[in-house]
Write a protein that binds this DNA or RNA. Sequence first.
RNA 1: GGAGGAGUGCCCGAGUGGCUAAAGGGGACGGGCUGUAAACCCGUUGACUUCGGUCUACGUUGGUUCGAAUCCAACCUCCUCCA
Length: 417
Amino acid sequence: MAHPKSDFLQILTERGFIHQTSDLDAIDQLAAKGEIIAYVGYDCTAPSLHVGSLISIMMLHWLQQTGNKPITLMGGGTTRVGDPSGRDETRRILTLEKIEEHKTGIGKVFDRFLSFGDGKDDALMVDNADWLAPLNYIDFLRDVGKNFSVNRMLSMDSAKMRLDREQELSFIEFNYMLLQAYDYVELARRLGCNLQMGGSDQWGNIVTGMDLGRRMGTHQLHALTCPLLTTASGAKMGKTASGAVWLNEDQLSAYDYWQYWRNTEDADVGRFLKLFTTLPMDEIARLEKLEGADVNDAKKVLATEATALLHGRGKAEAAAETARKTFEQGAVGDDLPVVEVAAAELGAGISVILAFVTAGLVASNSEARRQIKGGGLKVNDKPVSDDKLKLDSSNLSDENVIKLSMGKKKHVLLRPV
RNA sequence: GGAGGAGUGCCCGAGUGGCUAAAGGGGACGGGCUGUAAACCCGUUGACUUCGGUCUACGUUGGUUCGAAUCCAACCUCCUCCA
């Protein structure tokens, strides 16, 4: 469909959110009337979501902005089983306590993107443990299981991949798609849900749910998936030096989050501006035209806008300012991570090696020595050449800190207390 | 239950008695080039170190040997085939 009528599909299409849909015309008609009730499921496998999930959160955001109702489904029940999709090994089975903990962590992030409440277009958050946990095995087999063909299940990518590679697919995992399909039916019945969205790896699970809905007599259900993002050079999105790009601030600071977006590859800037900011399309078009070193301006806009969505405008601008000072002036930015040391210890002099280990910039004394040999460590922007160097109060800057750097991008301030 | 096969560093994977902290590749980190990009080039990639070395490591536990990732035994885990 070249020109969707609904604002929702209009936006998703022009911003590059759509990978695959079941019946685009039908979804368009519902969206135009503000009658979409859509959900995305999030399993509680980690204490926070990461940028990989952001694209689906943005879809929910636009859905609500265009007058439809979003539902976030917490997989409190399905996480107990574990989704085999796209995995070549069985997930470790998490304890119920962990799952609860993760659920709380993950839930926090949605307030930034959605407005929750009881009104018609307000977002809802539900937990599939509410209906999955009390299920009775025999009843479930009779009511739901009879609608599934093992032949077909075996042919689905999530199962096929394991079978083809002769890797274990345990029975518990094999059941995951039944539960996710059943979720869709349950949400359709309880809340009138009529659309499930997710990453393209979820397509199989989603259409299985649609199919189950038809067999179990719900209204017509729909599917819409977004592309799984990789960077232009093919890497999976969401990894940095220090691990995943978490959305919760206690897992990844606003400054580091800003830096993540700032370091976007040139070829990705336009695509990411469309997906991860709410800037108007004509503004994005302008930024996309920038070339050469000017692309950096677009990356800064991307970083600030994306960070503002998640952490608020104030923190985004503070991060931008710190980055400006740190990288463009070589000065000391306020937002850099600070590590405190006892003033007395510093007065007595501490070895550079210990200082860098304490700051967490290197993992061990040996690594510190190696990095010094390789010229990777700096104190107050001056390379360290001697691993026996001692730091003391004479190294303190006017701001009463010592700036430790590893490479060009990682900096920590050492402050005496 | 029977018969085979496999378990090596972050990952993949070579190595079948000393020259092995363990080839090669990937990833990661650092340096160079640049624009805090990509690509490319170089270096590093167990810990501790007074830089002489020391210690810990090839599924687990024992054994043989001057010496074991390599040989032997038992155990654990996984895979394949048979019942």
